[in-house]
Design a protein around this nucleic acid. Structure first.
Length: 565
RNA sequence: GCGCCAGUAGCUCAGUAGGAUAGAGCAACUGCCUUCUAAGCAGUAGGCCAGGGGUUCGAAUCCCUUCUGGCGUGCCA
């Protein structure tokens, strides 16, 4: 699990610390001054492979001019036995370090040795983390927003797994409560309309008016005929509810699976009612004195925990609210199932809920006050077609569903496009996503992979096998394009580390674009076939390493790595 | 009103807990295939990092403030 970048950073920090101590010994600098000089990778390689701002940061506490201090450090700095071959002072006092050839060889060795695990770390130390995502209401079809949430959640989970967490992917099925009741009533109305004409029944005011409800009623009719026409309405609705939910949940499972998303668990909201856990949780809050009754409803005194308003837990009609069940659900995640950390991926329209729920979490009686619940709030997706915004409206039936989308564009393109940026506002341009050409960056990456595969085949036919990392001379890989490429290869572990830390898997997309770009530039500048054997073998090894890392990253994102295009 | 997210090239976006001359991709223009995939590469052009203050050696980045946009502030989920 080599993070060669981090190792290089630590090495530089140690080299400077040693130089500082050595200057102290000679009485040139005061002792005991702790300065955390930052080691960074300069934007331009002419400023070194790594640069330390130590002299800039330490100038004041050491009472020296930055440039002067840098000279002093440099004079006491020994690169003997380090991965660096050269260090110099530049600009206002940066210490710029240049890597030696052996370091480049180490990168290729690490990729070879670690294989598909390259980039992994033990950051999570095996902690059990649940990522709950999509959790679309089973009263309808999944939207573009769910498509984004699916990719974001799945990719975040993948990145956390690679970073050493034990990850559990969960879909929360809202198969109980008010919305489901509305769903059943809407279905019932459509069923009755089907049998007795439009005027026979009316969809409830807050019901579901979409075409999908009509279709579901039609299917129900095809199976049961008019058997439920004269049945007890409560029984009829129960039957239709069950039918509708199971149909919709199956559809979601199918669509998500087609999308490459597989859950460890589909958790039923209804199970929280059945186990009495909702009731128990409410009792807990009531016993603790955190609730009050007002106008026939039971309220949670959430302002006592710092929220901006109180929440209704039980409506005056006796039904529990989403909020109440959500408290029970999160208690279940932490206290029953024992997750160390829980991440909820939510749409921006739920951010208010996230803020208020965080307040509720601090109620000590719930047993979650010291637990980690993180929210990934993604801004809404704006859909663009023919350069114009497509208004998403469930009611008008104009919304584009996840399965519509997958009929239009490849899973690879969708997974890439929805992970193209962090959680902020995303503009999804259908016209670009549909295109299978260079306008679509996913093909840029896949093309690099396919190009290398073809290259490897050609060389194999010519009798050259990919050598072991130990067998090549890394000093031969000295062209700027080769060095840049290897440095980018070395960055995957760091990228995964940051992606896991910040819950930002879109870093991997950007990383892969950069890696593909570095490869294409290398490919253009450096030939392989026809070179002297040592150089040919070194470059062959480099190409194979790039292929492996591209595959590695694409796998992480659930995107295919084609061998030919 | 209050809260959350945002404002960087014509468009879509990066900018790795403050670093050196602000970067990609697309679109535009100019070149590069008799040799490993041109779905590629090289180059040109394109910027008051929304505006204004502050913090310091140094700010797109941190603080304050104004403006603009999206979302939230339901006995909806």
């Amino acid at each position: 699990m080599a993070n060669l970048i981090q190792m290089a950073r630590e090495e530089i920090a140690a080299l400077i610390e040693r130089a500082y101590q050595s200057a102290v010994q000679e009485g040139l600098l005061p002792s005991g001054v702790q300065v955390a000089g930052k080691v960074e990778i300069p934007k331009e390689s002419k400023n070194g492979d790594y640069a330390s701002s130590y002299a800039l940061a330490a100038a004041k506490p050491l009472n020296k001019k930055p440039r002067e201090l840098a000279e002093l450090i440099l004079a006491h700095l020994s690169l003997e036995g380090s991965g660096f071959e050269r260090v110099e002072i530049a600009g206002p006092g940066f210490l710029n370090f240049y890597l030696g050839a052996a370091w480049y060889g180490k990168v290729l060795s690490a990729i070879e040795r670690e294989g598909a695990a390259y980039g992994a770390s033990d950051m999570g130390k095996g902690a059990r983390v649940m990522v709950e995502f999509v959790s679309a209401n089973p009263t309808g079809t999944m939207t573009i927003g769910n498509a984004r949430g699916g990719v974001l959640g799945d990719a975040t989970a993948a990145v956390l797994e690679r970073a050493g967490y034990e990850v559990h992917r969960e879909f929360y099925v809202n198969d109980a409560g008010n919305q489901v009741e509305m769903f059943a009533r809407s279905l019932e109305a459509r069923y009755l309309q089907l049998l007795q004409g439009e005027g026979a029944a009316e969809i409830p005011e807050d019901g579901y008016h979409g075409e999908d409800i009509k279709e579901l009623a039609q299917r129900f009719f095809e199976i049961h005929g008019d058997a439920f026409l004269s049945a007890d309405p409560a029984r009829r609705r129960e039957e239709m509810r069950r039918f509708g939910l199971s149909h919709n949940v199956e559809k979601m499972k199918t669509d998500l699976s087609r999308y490459g998303i597989h859950y460890d668990q589909w958790f039923l909201e209804s199970s929280l009612y059945e186990s009495g856990y909702v009731e128990e949780t409410m009792q807990l809050l009531t016993d603790a004195g955190h609730t009050y009754e007002k106008e026939g409803a039971l309220w949670l005194c959430n302002t006592a925990f710092g929220a901006d308003k109180d929440e209704v837990l039980r409506r005056s009609n006796g039904l529990y609210t989403y909020y109440a069940v959500d408290i029970a659900y999160h208690r279940n995640k932490f206290c029953v199932r024992g997750f160390d950390k829980v991440i909820d991926v939510l749409g921006a329209d739920h951010h208010g809920h996230a803020v208020r729920f965080a307040a509720t979490m601090t109620a000590p009686e719930l047993g979650m006050e010291d637990k980690t619940l993180d929210f990934i709030i993604m801004q809404l997706v704006q859909l663009l077609q023919d350069g114009k915004e497509v208004k998403v409206s469930k009611r008008s039936g104009k919304s584009i569903t996840l399965s519509d989308l997958l009929d239009e564009i490849s899973v690879d393109a969708a997974r890439f496009a929805f992970n193209a940026k962090p959680t902020n506002h995303l503009i999804f341009d259908l016209d670009i996503a549909v295109r299978e050409d260079s306008e679509n960056p996913v093909y840029y990456i896949q093309y690099a992979h396919a190009r290398i595969c073809s290259l490897l085949t050609r060389l194999q036919e010519a009798g050259y096998a990919v050598p072991a990392a130990e067998a090549i001379n890394p000093a031969l890989l000295c062209a700027p394009e080769e060095k840049a490429l290897i440095k980018t290869l070395s960055q995957l572990p760091e990228e995964i580390h940051f992606a896991a830390r910040d819950y930002d898997p879109s870093r991997i997309n950007r990383y892969l674009v950069a890696l593909a770009g570095d490869f294409h530039r290398f490919y253009n500048a450096c030939r392989i076939q026809g070179e002297e054997q040592p150089l040919l073998l070194a470059r062959l090894k480099l190409a194979e390493s790039v292929r492996a890392v591209l595959k590695n990253g694409l796998d992480l994102l659930g995107i295919s790595a084609p061998e030919a295009m």
